[in-house]
Lab assay of single mutants.
Amino acid sequence: YKIYPYDSLIVTNSISVKLPKDVDRTRLERHLSPEEFQEVFGMSIEEFDRLALWKRNDLKKKALLF
C-alpha cells in the first residue's frame, strides 16, 4: 500500500470526500506509515490485525478512517 499522511485519509460525513485515487477505500488504515499508525491507533499494525473485526471497525470509525 502507498503511504499517505493521516490528514489526507480521514473521512468526514461530507459527500465530497477527495481521497487519493489509488487508496483502498476499505482499508484506509493500511496507507498510514507505521509511526503514524501507532500514533492514531495506539498500537502496531500487527496488534491491530489480531483484534476482532468489530473492534477494528470501531477503532477505524473513531479515527475517521471508516
Results as ranks from 00 to 15, higher is better:
residue 1 Y to G: 07
residue 26 T to H: 14
residue 34 P to T: 14
residue 25 R to P: 15
residue 21 K to M: 13
residue 65 L to G: 01
residue 42 G to V: 06
residue 52 A to V: 09
residue 35 E to M: 11
residue 51 L to V: 04
residue 53 L to A: 10
residue 33 S to L: 04
residue 63 A to M: 07
residue 27 R to C: 08
residue 9 L to R: 00
residue 22 D to L: 04
residue 57 N to G: 05
residue 20 P to H: 05
residue 61 K to N: 06
residue 31 H to T: 01
residue 52 A to R: 08
residue 20 P to E: 05
residue 42 G to S: 12
residue 28 L to F: 02
residue 14 S to D: 15
residue 62 K to P: 02
residue 60 K to Y: 02
residue 40 V to I: 10
residue 63 A to N: 07
residue 44 S to L: 11
residue 2 K to M: 09
residue 17 V to G: 15
residue 59 L to Y: 05
residue 66 F to H: 08
residue 62 K to E: 09
residue 44 S to R: 13
residue 55 K to S: 08
residue 25 R to S: 10
residue 16 S to N: 14
residue 22 D to F: 05
residue 15 I to M: 15
residue 60 K to W: 02
residue 43 M to L: 07
residue 7 D to Q: 15
residue 61 K to L: 08
residue 40 V to D: 00
residue 15 I to H: 15
residue 12 T to W: 15
residue 46 E to Y: 11
residue 50 R to A: 13
residue 30 R to C: 06
residue 11 V to H: 08
residue 19 L to H: 07
residue 57 N to K: 08
residue 22 D to I: 04
residue 42 G to W: 06
residue 30 R to Y: 05
residue 63 A to Q: 04
residue 23 V to H: 02
residue 12 T to E: 09
residue 7 D to L: 15
residue 19 L to S: 05
residue 30 R to S: 03
residue 39 E to V: 14
residue 34 P to D: 10
residue 15 I to L: 14
residue 22 D to W: 06
residue 34 P to C: 09
residue 64 L to A: 08
residue 5 P to Y: 03
residue 1 Y to Q: 09
residue 16 S to K: 10
residue 10 I to A: 06
residue 59 L to C: 03
residue 26 T to E: 14
residue 1 Y to P: 14
residue 58 D to G: 09
residue 1 Y to W: 09
residue 13 N to A: 12
residue 59 L to G: 01
residue 21 K to Y: 12
residue 6 Y to P: 01
residue 2 K to E: 10
residue 43 M to K: 03
residue 27 R to S: 09
residue 18 K to T: 15
residue 41 F to L: 05
residue 12 T to V: 11
residue 45 I to A: 08
residue 20 P to C: 04
residue 43 M to R: 05
residue 37 F to T: 02
residue 42 G to K: 14
residue 53 L to Q: 11
residue 51 L to Y: 05
residue 51 L to P: 00
residue 6 Y to E: 01
residue 36 E to S: 08
residue 46 E to V: 13
residue 51 L to Q: 07
residue 5 P to C: 04
residue 12 T to M: 15
residue 17 V to I: 12
residue 34 P to K: 15
residue 48 F to V: 00
residue 39 E to K: 15
residue 10 I to P: 00
residue 57 N to L: 12
residue 64 L to E: 06
residue 6 Y to C: 02
residue 36 E to H: 05
residue 58 D to M: 14
residue 64 L to S: 10
residue 28 L to Q: 01
residue 45 I to C: 07
residue 66 F to K: 04
residue 36 E to A: 08
residue 12 T to A: 11
residue 5 P to D: 06
residue 33 S to H: 08
residue 23 V to F: 03
residue 9 L to D: 01
residue 15 I to T: 15
residue 24 D to W: 05
residue 10 I to S: 04
residue 40 V to R: 05
residue 33 S to I: 04
residue 35 E to Q: 13
residue 10 I to M: 09
residue 53 L to E: 12
residue 3 I to M: 06
residue 7 D to V: 15
residue 12 T to D: 11
residue 65 L to M: 05
residue 30 R to H: 04
residue 55 K to M: 13
residue 23 V to K: 01
residue 29 E to G: 00
residue 12 T to N: 10
residue 22 D to P: 03
residue 2 K to D: 08
residue 55 K to H: 11
residue 39 E to D: 12
residue 13 N to R: 09
residue 34 P to Y: 11
residue 27 R to Y: 07
residue 11 V to Q: 14
residue 23 V to S: 03
residue 16 S to V: 10
residue 66 F to G: 06
residue 25 R to Q: 12
residue 20 P to I: 04
residue 57 N to A: 08
residue 56 R to P: 01
residue 62 K to M: 10
residue 43 M to V: 04
residue 54 W to Y: 10
residue 32 L to M: 04
residue 16 S to D: 15
residue 4 Y to T: 02
residue 66 F to M: 09
residue 40 V to M: 04
residue 29 E to D: 03
residue 38 Q to S: 12
residue 4 Y to M: 04
residue 15 I to F: 09
residue 38 Q to R: 13
residue 60 K to T: 02
residue 53 L to G: 09
residue 46 E to W: 10
residue 66 F to E: 06
residue 13 N to W: 05
residue 44 S to F: 09
residue 37 F to W: 03
residue 22 D to H: 06
residue 13 N to V: 08
residue 53 L to I: 10
residue 5 P to G: 05
residue 49 D to T: 07
residue 15 I to N: 15
residue 23 V to T: 05
residue 61 K to R: 12
residue 51 L to M: 09
residue 16 S to T: 12
residue 14 S to Y: 04
residue 8 S to F: 15
residue 57 N to C: 09
residue 43 M to S: 03
residue 31 H to R: 02
residue 10 I to L: 08
residue 9 L to E: 01
residue 1 Y to L: 14
residue 38 Q to T: 10
residue 57 N to T: 11
residue 19 L to R: 05
residue 5 P to A: 08
residue 62 K to I: 09
residue 47 E to V: 11
residue 22 D to C: 06
residue 26 T to L: 12
residue 56 R to Y: 02
residue 24 D to F: 05
residue 40 V to W: 04
residue 50 R to F: 08
residue 7 D to I: 15
residue 9 L to H: 01
residue 48 F to N: 00
residue 38 Q to N: 13
residue 32 L to F: 01
residue 53 L to C: 15
residue 50 R to G: 12
residue 60 K to M: 03
residue 18 K to H: 15
residue 54 W to E: 12
residue 38 Q to M: 14
residue 2 K to W: 05
residue 18 K to D: 15
residue 26 T to C: 15
residue 64 L to N: 12
residue 26 T to D: 13
residue 54 W to S: 11
residue 66 F to Q: 07
residue 25 R to Y: 09
residue 10 I to C: 07
residue 59 L to D: 01
residue 50 R to C: 11
residue 49 D to C: 07
residue 65 L to R: 02
residue 12 T to F: 15
residue 33 S to C: 07
residue 27 R to G: 04
residue 40 V to N: 06
residue 7 D to S: 15
residue 33 S to Q: 04
residue 29 E to T: 01
residue 49 D to I: 04
residue 9 L to A: 00
residue 45 I to L: 13
residue 39 E to T: 14
residue 1 Y to F: 12
residue 55 K to W: 08
residue 33 S to T: 06
residue 17 V to P: 13
residue 4 Y to L: 05
residue 15 I to D: 15
residue 40 V to F: 04
residue 14 S to R: 10
residue 48 F to Y: 06
residue 59 L to V: 03
residue 38 Q to L: 14
residue 7 D to T: 15
residue 33 S to Y: 03
residue 33 S to K: 05
residue 23 V to L: 06
residue 12 T to S: 13
residue 33 S to M: 04
residue 45 I to Y: 07
residue 16 S to H: 14
residue 2 K to L: 09
residue 60 K to D: 00
residue 62 K to R: 12
residue 46 E to D: 13
residue 16 S to A: 12
residue 25 R to K: 11
residue 24 D to Q: 05
residue 4 Y to Q: 02
residue 57 N to Q: 10
residue 35 E to W: 10
residue 47 E to N: 10
residue 41 F to C: 01
residue 58 D to T: 11
residue 53 L to K: 09
residue 52 A to W: 07
residue 29 E to Y: 02
residue 37 F to I: 02
residue 46 E to A: 13
residue 48 F to H: 00
residue 4 Y to D: 01
residue 54 W to P: 10
residue 5 P to Q: 05
residue 35 E to H: 11
residue 36 E to Q: 11
residue 58 D to C: 14
residue 48 F to A: 00
residue 65 L to P: 01
residue 36 E to C: 06
residue 39 E to M: 15
residue 41 F to E: 00
residue 21 K to F: 10
residue 9 L to Y: 00
residue 38 Q to F: 14
residue 3 I to S: 06
residue 62 K to F: 06
residue 23 V to M: 04
residue 62 K to G: 09
residue 9 L to I: 05
residue 30 R to I: 04
residue 8 S to A: 14
residue 63 A to W: 04
residue 43 M to A: 02
residue 33 S to D: 07
residue 28 L to K: 03
residue 51 L to A: 04
residue 27 R to D: 03
residue 56 R to L: 02
residue 62 K to T: 09
residue 3 I to P: 07
residue 59 L to H: 04
residue 63 A to C: 05
residue 20 P to Y: 04
residue 58 D to P: 02
residue 13 N to H: 10
residue 62 K to C: 08
residue 29 E to K: 01
